[in-house]
Simulated scan of single mutants.
Amino acid sequence: MTNLQKLCMGYFVALMIAASLNYIPGLADENGLAFGIFALDIYDDALHVASAFWALIAGLWSHRAARTFLILFGLAYLGDGVFGFFTGYGYLDLGIFTNNSAGMDLSLGRVLANLPHLALGGVAAWAGLRDARRTT
């Protein structure tokens, strides 16, 4: 198993943990915010589970599948995190279609709410694109 395939396995675990946050007692406050920062709904959970299984399948399948997952997933999640700064909502969970834009905000709360997608997406895209550049 290559390093990219192992990274996909890590993404599988991380995304399954993200999908389970709503179901662990004590992690959400009285307003339903996980860690008091962001709200997760059924669409977020479905997105995280689908992404997790994509990571698992890619990681088990091949190095090339892992690289493709990391690039596509990385760019999608990174873009979703950046988009969250401009609107307060992402596009992956269809939040931009179900909510009015909250406008651009670089407050600590908005940064922390978007940081998971920025970090997961940035690392994945970097790893996949770095490997793609090495093999061409």
Rank of each mutant, 00 (worst) to 15 (best):
residue 2 T to M: 06
residue 3 N to I: 04
residue 4 L to D: 15
residue 4 L to Y: 13
residue 6 K to Y: 08
residue 6 K to I: 11
residue 8 C to S: 13
residue 9 M to N: 11
residue 10 G to C: 00
residue 12 F to W: 13
residue 12 F to Y: 12
residue 12 F to H: 04
residue 14 A to H: 08
residue 15 L to H: 02
residue 16 M to R: 06
residue 20 S to K: 07
residue 20 S to H: 03
residue 21 L to Y: 06
residue 22 N to C: 01
residue 23 Y to L: 03
residue 23 Y to C: 00
residue 27 L to A: 01
residue 28 A to Y: 07
residue 29 D to K: 09
residue 30 E to N: 15
residue 30 E to T: 14
residue 32 G to W: 10
residue 35 F to S: 02
residue 35 F to H: 00
residue 37 I to R: 02
residue 38 F to T: 11
residue 38 F to H: 08
residue 38 F to V: 07
residue 40 L to C: 00
residue 41 D to H: 07
residue 43 Y to H: 09
residue 46 A to E: 11
residue 47 L to P: 03
residue 48 H to A: 00
residue 50 A to E: 11
residue 51 S to H: 06
residue 51 S to M: 07
residue 52 A to C: 05
residue 53 F to Q: 03
residue 53 F to H: 04
residue 54 W to M: 09
residue 55 A to P: 08
residue 56 L to E: 07
residue 57 I to R: 13
residue 59 G to E: 14
residue 61 W to S: 14
residue 61 W to V: 08
residue 62 S to K: 09
residue 62 S to W: 11
residue 62 S to Q: 10
residue 63 H to T: 03
residue 64 R to G: 02
residue 65 A to H: 15
residue 65 A to D: 12
residue 68 T to H: 10
residue 71 I to H: 11
residue 71 I to Q: 14
residue 72 L to Y: 13
residue 72 L to N: 15
residue 74 G to R: 05
residue 77 Y to E: 06
residue 77 Y to Q: 11
residue 77 Y to S: 05
residue 78 L to W: 12
residue 79 G to L: 04
residue 80 D to F: 12
residue 80 D to G: 14
residue 83 F to Y: 11
residue 85 F to C: 08
residue 85 F to S: 10
residue 89 Y to Q: 03
residue 91 Y to S: 06
residue 92 L to G: 09
residue 93 D to K: 00
residue 96 I to E: 06
residue 99 N to A: 12
residue 99 N to F: 13
residue 101 S to E: 11
residue 101 S to A: 14
residue 102 A to S: 12
residue 102 A to R: 12
residue 104 M to F: 15
residue 104 M to H: 08
residue 107 S to G: 10
residue 108 L to T: 13
residue 108 L to H: 06
residue 109 G to R: 14
residue 109 G to I: 07
residue 111 V to C: 02
residue 111 V to N: 07
residue 115 L to T: 06
residue 115 L to E: 15
residue 118 L to C: 03
residue 120 L to N: 05
residue 122 G to V: 00
residue 123 V to R: 10
residue 124 A to R: 11
residue 124 A to L: 01
residue 125 A to Q: 12
residue 126 W to I: 05
residue 127 A to H: 02
residue 129 L to F: 11
residue 130 R to S: 13
residue 130 R to T: 13
residue 131 D to V: 00
residue 132 A to Q: 14
residue 135 T to G: 09
residue 136 T to W: 12
